[in-house]
Amino acid sequence: MTKNAYSIRVLEYAFALNCPESAVIYGAHNEGIRKLPYAYVLIQGQGHNIMVDVGYNHAEYGGFLADKFGVINWQPPHAVLAECDLTPEDIDVVILTHAHFDHMGNIQAFPNAKFYIQEREISNWISAMAQPAHMQWAMLGTDPSDVLRVADLARQGRLVCLKGEVEDLLPGIDVHTAFNTHTDGCMWVKVRNDLARDSQNVWVLAGDLVYSYKNLLDDPKIVGGEVEGDLRLRPVGLAMGSMVNLIHSSDEMLKHVGYQIKRLIPVHEQLLPQVFPSRITEAGLQLIEVSLADDDFSRVC
């Protein structure tokens, strides 16, 4: 019987040291700053190397982001993936949770991957960009060049536009929608790691629907690798859609993991290394091992 079909690792590729708490938690004004990791997720198993989001390309925006927003220590995918003995060419599937630059801004680095995105995310881009100048807020963080690169993927037959939720996109991996939340066509990923339909071994990769444990718990504490605190859902600091929908999507994700907070992975959470086995790479970035497949070996020990 399969215990863990997939290894799941969160790979930090850059970080900002001075992110306002209010950017992470809606309404948390004047509550200081925190480190904000930028990361993507690598899922390996069943003959696949899967990425959930692909980060951004420093060559495109790096200097400006570093100067203006304090984003530092960006490392390219070939350096980050090398920590797991992979190259970007080895990635065969990419699931794009949404279209913001720090999640979808480096698709050109993965030449052999097939990409999945919600069609609604794309049609919403177009509608948002068609609005007059004074209504362009919804286009924050989206690069039209990325849109063109996605168009190029479509031309090459490497893009699949999904219309809603898909069970078993790959064996044991489902994608769920959270429309009209952080962005209009957001999705999150559920890994049923024992491959069972009624799985007792579920991990949820939240994309940007949850940035931090503080979006889920009041005063979260990490005790012996467990995330503890009173359940209290609060939306992330940025929603192109409805804050109420964000709360509902958080609750929905939690239902899928039986409200075990540890099994919901917020990739921008700086506390992840305290919850899961991890190490700091030579480049000074976190490599976090959420789950280890039965036939894999640890990259952090």
Binding site: A16, N18, C19, P20, A23, I33, L36, Y38, Y61, F64, L65, K68, F69, G70, V71, H100, F101, D102, Q136, M139, L140, G141, T142, D143, P144, S145, H182, D208, V236, G237, L238, H268
Partner: peptide
């Protein structure tokens, strides 16, 4: 003059 509007967008800080 820039293609992407970063101000206030997700994961951007230090305004």
């Amino acid at each position: 003059l820039q293609p992407v509007q970063f101000e206030g967008c997700c994961a951007c800080c230090a305004h």
